[in-house]
Simulated assay, not measured.
Amino acid sequence: MPVYTVHAPSPAGADLRATDKFVFVRDGFHFWAMVFGPFWLLWNRLWLALIGWVVVLAAFDAGLSSLGVGRSAIFFANTIVALLMGFEASSLRRWTLSRGKWRQLDVVIADDEDTAERRFFERWSQKQRGIVNDQWAVDRGGPPPTRGVPGQQFSNPPPIPAGGIIGLFPEPGGSR
């Protein structure tokens, strides 16, 4: 069953209420990215990945031809590079989204993208208490949560039991 990652624009770039801008990226092998690599990159607006693909493939082919490798071996090597493009296409798309200040909200397992959207929005609408305080979103590249910031999940430590500390260690300053 396919796995989808859900990405949303950063809060500074767009409001989380603009759910029509959420992007669902399917993890796995992309056949069309393997067959039509540069066109697939253009279609998905992966400009830096396209430039990198062109540069790497040109350098790879020039290096192989300068070593005196035959045309059939170069074709086989290009087929392997195309296969790698098919496997890494979703990772390139997620990388481009993260560079554009998008953040990953969730991971959804579903048969197709429509079912993934339905499952995500059912679960997401139940968790949304306030759109501004989105504690469950994965913010890649942001600082880790700290206890001093209000609104974090673990801002306040749990209360100490009334009878003292339970466990192997006694209270500080207590009798032994």
Rank of each mutant, 00 (worst) to 15 (best):
D15G: 08
A59V: 01
A73W: 03
L41N: 10
V55R: 03
W53M: 11
F36M: 13
N78P: 00
L41W: 14
W40T: 04
F39Y: 13
F29W: 12
L16R: 13
S72M: 05
D61N: 10
L67C: 04
N78C: 02
R26G: 05
V81M: 08
K21D: 10
M34R: 11
N78M: 00
W40V: 03
V23A: 09
L42Y: 05
W47M: 04
P11V: 13
D20R: 07
F36P: 07
L41S: 08
V23F: 11
S66T: 00
V35S: 14
A12N: 09
L64F: 10
G37P: 10
R45V: 01
I51P: 06
A12I: 05
G37R: 06
R45P: 12
A33P: 02
F75I: 03
G70H: 02
A73V: 01
P11S: 15
V55Q: 00
T19N: 12
G52P: 05
L42K: 08
A12V: 08
A49W: 07
I74N: 12
S66L: 08
V35N: 15
V54T: 01
R26Y: 01
A12P: 00
F22I: 04
V69D: 06
F31W: 15
V54A: 14
K21Q: 11
S66I: 00
A49P: 09
W40P: 02
F36S: 06
M34E: 01
A73Y: 03
V81E: 09
F75T: 04
A62Q: 05
H30T: 06
L48I: 06
W53T: 03
D61W: 03
A77L: 00
D20S: 15
N44W: 12
G37S: 15
F36Y: 15
G28W: 00
A62E: 03
G70D: 07
I80K: 08
R17S: 11
W47T: 00
V55E: 09
S65L: 05
W32A: 07
G68S: 06
W40D: 13
L50E: 06
L16W: 07
F24I: 03
T79R: 02
F60I: 00
L50S: 03
T19Y: 08
A73Q: 09
L64H: 06
H30K: 04
A77Y: 00
L57M: 09
V23I: 14
T19F: 08
W53G: 14
D27A: 14
V81Q: 04
W53L: 11
F22Y: 15
F75W: 13
R45L: 11
V25M: 04
G63S: 10
W53F: 15
I51Q: 12
L48F: 13
I51K: 04
A58V: 00
A14F: 07
V69L: 10
G13S: 13
M34I: 01
F24A: 03
V69T: 10
I74L: 10
W40Q: 04
W40K: 11
